[in-house]
Amino acid sequence: MRVLGGLERGAVLDSPSWVATLLRQPWVMPLFRIGLVSAYLIGGVTKLLHFDAAVAEQVHAGLHPGWLWAALAIFVEIAGSLCIIFNRFTWLGAGGPAALTVVAMLVANSFWRLEGVARFIALNNFFEHLGLIAAFVMVTYLASGERRSRV
């Protein structure tokens, strides 16, 4: 498969010319990688600056010991985000936040235990998180394609 600027050639060729031109710009993929991890990066830094609140958040979600889960979340959110932003060890950088997101989905968005409006909100959050996990898979795929195209 030939990769062009991190995107499969067919994907670019199947797009209108203005879309293909935009996607070929060197700043596009870095910008979208930053966008993808922005909530994780900001969340990790905020947890680091307010560690007591991060511990309380983990305990509230039923994760014990809270300090360990908070420290793990901080490391995964910051280190994983930086791996994705700098496009290095992307598979690892994406895997960490994806795994953390799975835990969050199962612990904080367990819609199957709720009813009414709470179920509706948790169901939406669950599938929004599932979309983020899919985006982490896609960014890993694109990064591996970029490396293959340079060889």
Rank of each mutant, 00 (worst) to 15 (best):
residue 90 T to D: 13
residue 102 V to S: 08
residue 151 V to C: 08
residue 92 L to G: 11
residue 29 M to S: 13
residue 84 I to T: 12
residue 142 L to N: 14
residue 21 T to N: 12
residue 75 F to D: 12
residue 97 P to Q: 03
residue 6 G to Y: 08
residue 59 V to F: 03
residue 81 S to K: 00
residue 98 A to S: 03
residue 137 V to A: 15
residue 86 F to I: 03
residue 78 I to C: 02
residue 41 L to P: 11
residue 95 G to L: 07
residue 145 G to N: 05
residue 126 F to R: 00
residue 86 F to E: 10
residue 20 A to I: 08
residue 48 L to C: 11
residue 94 A to D: 12
residue 19 V to I: 14
residue 146 E to N: 14
residue 147 R to P: 11
residue 7 L to H: 12
residue 86 F to N: 05
residue 143 A to V: 06
residue 71 A to C: 12
residue 39 A to C: 05
residue 151 V to I: 10
residue 64 H to Q: 13
residue 80 G to T: 00
residue 25 Q to V: 13
residue 11 A to G: 08
residue 122 A to T: 05
residue 21 T to S: 14
residue 71 A to M: 11
residue 18 W to C: 04
residue 108 A to H: 01
residue 32 F to Q: 04
residue 52 D to Y: 02
residue 60 H to G: 05
residue 29 M to N: 11
residue 86 F to M: 08
residue 150 R to I: 15
residue 119 R to L: 01
residue 70 A to E: 12
residue 83 C to R: 00
residue 64 H to I: 07
residue 45 V to R: 02
residue 148 R to N: 13
residue 80 G to Q: 00
residue 23 L to F: 12
residue 131 G to C: 04
residue 78 I to P: 06
residue 86 F to W: 13
residue 142 L to M: 15
residue 12 V to I: 11
residue 82 L to C: 11
residue 47 K to H: 15
residue 48 L to F: 14
residue 21 T to Y: 08
residue 48 L to G: 14
residue 66 G to L: 02
residue 137 V to H: 09
residue 92 L to A: 14
residue 126 F to V: 00
residue 12 V to C: 04
residue 149 S to I: 12
residue 119 R to P: 03
residue 119 R to T: 01
residue 86 F to V: 06
residue 92 L to Q: 07
residue 80 G to I: 00
residue 93 G to H: 04
residue 4 L to G: 04
residue 108 A to G: 10
residue 21 T to Q: 07
residue 22 L to H: 02
residue 120 F to C: 02
residue 72 L to D: 06
residue 67 W to A: 06
residue 10 G to T: 14
residue 83 C to D: 04
residue 84 I to C: 09
residue 144 S to Y: 09
residue 113 R to Y: 09
residue 134 A to S: 07
residue 7 L to M: 09
residue 138 M to T: 14
residue 56 A to F: 06
residue 99 A to K: 02
residue 113 R to V: 05
residue 96 G to S: 12
residue 134 A to K: 00
residue 33 R to D: 13
residue 123 L to I: 00
residue 24 R to D: 14
residue 133 I to N: 02
residue 37 V to I: 03
residue 133 I to V: 13
residue 53 A to N: 15
residue 100 L to C: 01
residue 144 S to D: 11
residue 150 R to K: 15
residue 111 F to M: 00
residue 8 E to G: 14
residue 67 W to N: 03
residue 133 I to L: 01
residue 27 W to C: 06
residue 28 V to H: 00
residue 86 F to A: 10
residue 100 L to W: 03
residue 113 R to S: 14
residue 53 A to P: 07
residue 99 A to N: 04
residue 102 V to C: 09
residue 72 L to H: 03
residue 89 F to T: 15
residue 10 G to E: 15
residue 85 I to A: 09
residue 89 F to I: 12
residue 135 A to Y: 02
residue 92 L to Y: 09
residue 110 S to H: 01
residue 146 E to H: 10
residue 103 V to A: 05
residue 8 E to N: 10
residue 132 L to Q: 06
residue 109 N to A: 10
residue 20 A to K: 10
residue 121 I to Q: 09
residue 46 T to I: 01
residue 71 A to I: 10
residue 117 V to N: 00
residue 91 W to S: 15
residue 74 I to G: 07
residue 73 A to C: 01
residue 126 F to D: 00
residue 118 A to H: 02
residue 120 F to N: 10
residue 8 E to W: 08
residue 56 A to N: 08
residue 107 V to F: 01
residue 82 L to V: 11
residue 145 G to C: 05
residue 9 R to W: 12
residue 62 G to P: 10
residue 81 S to C: 01
